[in-house]
Each structure stands twice: as C-alpha cells, then as structure tokens.
Design a protein around this nucleic acid. Structure first.
Lengths: 402, 402
DNA sequence: AAACTTTGTTCATCCACTAGACTAACAAGG
DNA sequence: CCTTGTTAGTCTAGTGGATGAACAAAGTTT
C-alpha cells in the first residue's frame, strides 16, 4: 500500500498559510495595526481581523493601547507576545555545557554554563539534566510554558535526532532525542553544532535579511552550517557541512580521518595548538596550550605567535574562498572559538580572499565574525523549537475545529 | 512605498496547487484513472473530476480507451499529452552548438548539431538563429506550438539571464535572453551549462528520484550544478558551482584565474591536454591534442596515456570527495566531455573516494557518469521551459476566470 | 438474473476569503 | 460646538472551491 505523501490544498491550508503571514508580519513589524497588516500583507481587512482574533485567543499576540492617529481613528496596536512561552537551548561543547532560556523572540532570559574535562557520557548527561532542570524550574510562568528543548552537539547527527558520532566527546550511536523526550515529555531537537549556529545567525544574528549564509564553526575542528535558499540544508542523511575534511593540499599531512591535507589541519584551534607546541613558548605552571593563552601571548607581543595566527587566518581564507566559489553566498560568518581571535585573523583572511576570489563573487559578499559570540549554537537550537512551536500553534486551531 | 512581495493564500492558490498535484500524478503514473488519482493524491473524487476537465480543455492530458476492470466499471485512462507543445533546448559549447526539439516529456524529436572553431559572437549568433529557425520550422503541429527556448552556455549567467562572462567563447556582458525574446517572441531562459545539466539529470536522467544531486560538468574546465532540496541552487547572484576554481593544492600551479592549485588544473580535459603535450605522443598530421585522440591512444594501449587518465580520475576523486563532504548528496553525476572516458576514469575515481570518504557518507551514495550523455545540458534547458509552461498553463485558467 | 464492485458525475453543504457597507473614533476648520 | 473628512475595525452578503453522499453507469461474480 502506498501511503499518501503529498499534502493536498484546502481551506485549512489557506487559513494556516495566511495566519502564518499575519503572525510573521506582526513579529517583524510590531507594534502594527490590523489595517497596516492588511495593506502590507495584501489580505482583506476582515480576513486579518478574523485571523488576529485567533492569534489573540492563542496568546501569541496581544493588543497594546491605541497608537497615534494619522488623521482618523486611532489604531489598536498589535504586538508579538514574546513571553507566551520559553525555549531551552543547550550547547554541548568538548569541555563545556552552555544552557540558555529564551523567550519566543530569542532574548536570553537566563543562562547557565558548566565547564568540565574528560567526562564520560553518564557524567555529562547528569550535568545536562541538572542544567535543564534548573532552567525549567527558573522559567517565568507563561501561557505555554517551556515549548521545547534543543541541543547542539559537536558531531554527526542523522535525520532522526541520533548522534552517530561525536569524536571529541567519544559518543557513538546515541539517541539523545529519545532520552530527553522520555524524561521531559517535551519536543526535543538535536542538531549539529554548526547547523544550529548557522540557524542562530540567520534568525537572531547578522544574517536575518539573507537567504544564503555559510556559517563556519571554527573550534577544535571545523564544521560548516549552510542556510541555502532561506532554509537549513542538511544533505540526504543530515551529514552536510563536513568541510573540515575538505582537501586543500593533496599531499599534505595526514588527518585523524585518514585523509591528507584536510582544511582543519591548517585552520582550526587544534592546528594552532599543534603548531605552537614545538615552539618552546612560555606557559604558566600546569597549563596546557589552548586558544586563550595563545591569544594572551599574541597580545603580549610575541611575534612568533602573532605570525602563527596570521598563517591560520590565511589558511582560513583558503577554505572560505572555496566556500565562496561553491555557494556564492551573501554572508560568510565565522563562529565558535576562533571567532574570539577576530583581531588577529581578520586581516590575513581578508587579504587571502581579496587576492583569490573571482571578481564577480566579490559583490554583495560579506565576511563577518559572529555577532552572537558564544551563543550562536544555543540560540540556534532554541530557535528550532520556537519555529516548530509557532507552526504547530497555527495548525492546532484548525485541527480542533474539524 | 513597500510593494507586496508575499503571496497570500486564497481559492486560486488552492485550485492551482491541486491541479498541479493532479497533473504531476498523471505525468508520473500515466495511464491512470480519475479514481486512482483521487485515492493516491488524497483528493475527493469530485474535485479530481473537475480538475481533470480543466486539464482536458487545455489539451495537457487526454483520455484513452477504457482500462481493465478490477471487479467493477472499467476506468477511463488519462494520459499526459506529451505532444501538446514542444521545447527548444540549445547547448552552446566552446566549439559546437547542439540544438534539440523535445516534447513535453523530454523526448528528443529532432536534433541539429554544428561544430566550429574560433568564431566571433556574431558568427555564432548567426548559427544559433539558423538552428532555432530550423527546429521551429520543423516542429510538428501542436495545440501550444513551441513553448519556449532554453540556452545553456559555458559561462557565468546572472539572475537576469545576462551572460556576464564566457571565457572560452570570449563573451562578456551579453544579454542573450533579451536578444532571443525580441527575435522570437517566446519565453527564453539562459542558464549556465552545468546548472542546466544538473537539472536535465534530475528531470530526465539518473536522478529523477533524488532531492540532492551534484552534477560535475567536466569539460575544458569544470563547473558544477547543484540540485539541493529538490531544486536548483544558484546562489545569491547565480554564481554558485564554480568548483573548478576550488583550491585542492595550496602551493600548486597557477591557474588562469590567478589562483594556485585549482581543481580544474588537475582534473579537466584541458589538464589532460596540457600534460599530454610534452609527452611526445604520435599524432596524425595537422591534428591537435584533444580528448578524442587521447582516448584513441589509450584504447590502442599506450601506457603513458592510460596512466594519465588514471591520474586524472584520481584527481577527479579528490574534488568529488570534497563535494561529498560538503553536500552529503544522494548522487554525484559526472557529465560533459570527460564522461565519455568513463572506462578509463571510473576505477581510479572510485578508489580515491573509497579510500577518502568519511564512512557515514558512503551509505546511499551513488557516483555515476551521465546517462543522458551529451544531451544533459540541452535537455536541462528544454526542461526549464517545459516546467515554466506547465506552471503558467495551470495558472492561466484561474486568472481568466476572475 | 441477482448481488456486488468500481468508476465517475451531480448536488447540497461547508469554509475561508473578498468587497463593500457600516460603525467607531479621531483631526481640522469654521 | 458642530460639521466635514479620514482612518480603523466590524459585519454581512456573496463567491469559489473542496467535501461527502447519493446516484448512475458499467463492469464482475455467483
């Protein structure tokens, strides 16, 4: 038996679509009157009134006092009800766990960060539960409560929310989505950290106006999140964006993935550390090399370290140039740990791109460092939940009224 | 003033959407009865009947004799009216011009090929007009006649149909779309040759079932066409897929684009020729090196040439591996001139990918050589016109009835 | 021949959008 | 203060298209 996969069109679809148009208009332009929504979206005034009433009933929007008159009756202003619910976003890093609670506009109302080192899955899971419990308990009261949990992980996530592999955490084949949904009875989304970061930047960061954004998450390794034609591109199985293992030097050094000359051997935090180690640099007792103390050394004027950053920025540029040739994006956003070294990396990176990029690619192209700083991923996964929640909220009314 | 950009939902949209579902079902499954369409698409029988009547009036489908009974009244079978119109597709290469006339299913009814060398734009334009005139004049009579002209060119085409640059033809800033629309008063589409090829494979070739396809057009240079999430991805300005200039060897040779180590320096027809020239190979009088005589030499058992092809296949694999890591596609299709050397290239290419690709990328991944052989591009541009025509046909009725 | 199946049409009903009338609320001018 | 004009929002009748059910048409099975 072939099941029906296509979605047919009927008045439910029409209403849902228009409701979504109205809601998005209010979110983007609040405060706004019914009349303005109608004229700007292109719907009839009556239609808008009716849809607005539905949205009011769902507490997704609210009316504020009358606005200013433009020569006639004063309009009733409509606003998006930011705080009708809250979303939990978790960013699990190699040695930290960042949890945030956001309202429906992505404003961070609460954050909780834990750092650790070399923990087992069970230990990290305990910390994860603790953070979620804390955020859930501390969330302000609201009509819809916690509307979902999103988790970003540094690894390969398939389309079912299973973490196939998180090499730096030593996780394999872990269905974190099922575990969390079971425990919290809430919608849960697990997503690759770079994909989430890209979505975060698209929704709340530098790229709100753009349809084609490439987010380069440069940390210990390099992952890439892709927003193409306005939506997240995940590939057939969810494994797109593994650009850290793009070959940029056929006969280069061997990578832990088994290949030679992978990009992340040249342009990641690990690359910096590996190259710094044999340099005999001064370090405080018991400290290991990491980005932070290398940045300190550079700030102190150590020329070797500065040169190292410049070299890394140049190599970042090589890969980003490949990205530009591939995607012709409007924005390339560099995020994750290396984004904090913007001052050291930006100039050599831009020089490389200026020298290499094909002339026609340079128009309208922006290369930026993340605006959301360390929150891109957490905000991104929180945004996934919000997006789903709003979509379902708009549908439900129709389903119930059938 | 802000113009209305969003499209609101109303009855027309519903009807248009359902009509499209019905038509596509008939195209995919013809012959098929009204009853089957209804149950498989999920629409009411009456709705389907009404929409089918519209489609019959437009000559987009037709009824054949009754089908076989399955225990009741015999169904009236519906078929897509292939020959309700014809589409012209032109593939302009560096030294050839291929024109085809197809029916609405992409069957080639007529073809006309011209070869040339070092012609000016004006000379090529004359040949282009001649081919179009010939195809137009020879097209069988049909209710809708010629429904559009599509042209694929080896160059950079922006979103307005202007050819910004076709380096191997020496064309610059040429609005071929305007020229052809003016002359023929038909809808004209100009598209990059690789993008068109990708679309051709998606519509009529190996990739009809796949949503994520990467088409590698390996000719004198390398261009890549991307089908992502089921649709052609063109980038913000239409310049995506310039993967021929992806760096795969940072300190490699210098390319004509000014950069070093570009992929097409290692894995294109030009790469083969450049490497073959100093080898002192035997050639017939007055002949220059090209793919054809190199293939002949390889077929004759020349070990140096065979090794050259193997090396090229290996390098093709390097870039394709980068593509796999980037896109996690279901299919990678190699097209254009080098596809004809499948026997020589396939093994080393597959070896390289087998050795390099990350393990989780290998599932469900197919690497193929083009099924449509030299027609990918011409069929692709013809398909663009067909797609547009069908979409407009479905709309028109609604617009008229307002 | 009678009973059952399947196909396709017809018709009354429902739902959501639209146009336009209407009410409410305001500004400006005499 | 009242009148005129303008804008905001509601209300109502009308319309288009999907739906479900009844029905006619044309088969098969027993």
């Amino acid at each position: 038996m072939k099941t029906v996969v296509t979605r047919t069109f009927n008045h439910h679809v029409v209403k849902e679509g228009n409701k979504s148009l109205v809601l998005n208009k209010i979110i983007d332009c609040s405060p706004i009157s019914r009349a303005s929504v109608a004229s700007e979206v292109g719907l009839n005034k009556g239609t808008v009134s009716s849809l607005v009433n539905d949205l009011l009933e769902d507490h997704l929007i609210y009316e504020s006092g009358p606005g200013v008159s433009s020569g006639g009756r004063r309009p009733v202003m409509l606003l998006f009800n930011d705080t009708a619910g809250h979303s939990i976003g978790i960013d699990i890093g190699v040695n930290y766990l960042l949890g945030i609670l956001t309202d429906l506009s992505g404003n961070i109302v609460l954050k909780k960060e834990v750092t650790f080192k070399d923990l087992s899955y069970e230990e990290i899971e305990a910390k994860l539960f603790a953070v979620i419990d804390y955020l859930q308990a501390s969330a302000p009261a609201s009509p819809h409560g916690i509307i979902g949990i999103g988790v970003g992980v540094p690894g390969i996530v398939d389309n079912d929310g299973s973490i196939l592999l998180a090499p730096n955490l030593n996780w394999k084949n872990l269905n974190l989505q099922a575990i969390l949904e079971e425990k919290y009875s809430l919608p849960v989304i697990i997503e690759n950290e770079a994909n989430a970061g890209a979505y975060g930047e698209k929704k709340f960061g530098a790229g709100t106006e753009c349809d084609n954004i490439v987010y380069v998450s440069a940390g210990i390794g390099i992952g890439v999140g892709l927003i193409l034609n306005g939506e997240l591109y995940k590939g057939s199985n969810g494994f797109s964006g593994e650009l850290g293992h793009m070959t940029i030097q056929i006969d280069g050094e061997t990578c832990r993935c088994g290949n030679k000359g992978c990009w992340e051997l040249y342009a990641s935090e690990q690359a910096l550390i590996t190259q710094a180690e044999p340099m005999g640099l001064p370090l405080a007792d018991h400290e290991e090399f990491d980005l932070t103390n290398l940045q300190a050394l550079a700030a102190a004027g150590n020329k070797d370290v500065i040169a190292l950053f410049e070299q890394t920025g140049d190599y970042l540029g090589v890969g980003i140039n490949n990205i530009i040739n591939t995607f012709n994006p409007q924005q390339v956003i560099i995020g994750n740990r290396l984004a904090s070294a913007k001052e050291l990396l930006e100039l050599p990176l831009n020089n490389r791109v200026a020298k290499q990029a094909l002339w026609f690619q340079k128009n309208d192209l922006e290369i930026k460092f993340s605006e959301l700083s360390t929150f891109s991923t957490a905000l991104g996964v929180a945004a996934f939940s919000i997006e789903n929640f709003l979509q379902v909220s708009i549908q439900q009314k129709n389903v119930l009224s059938v």
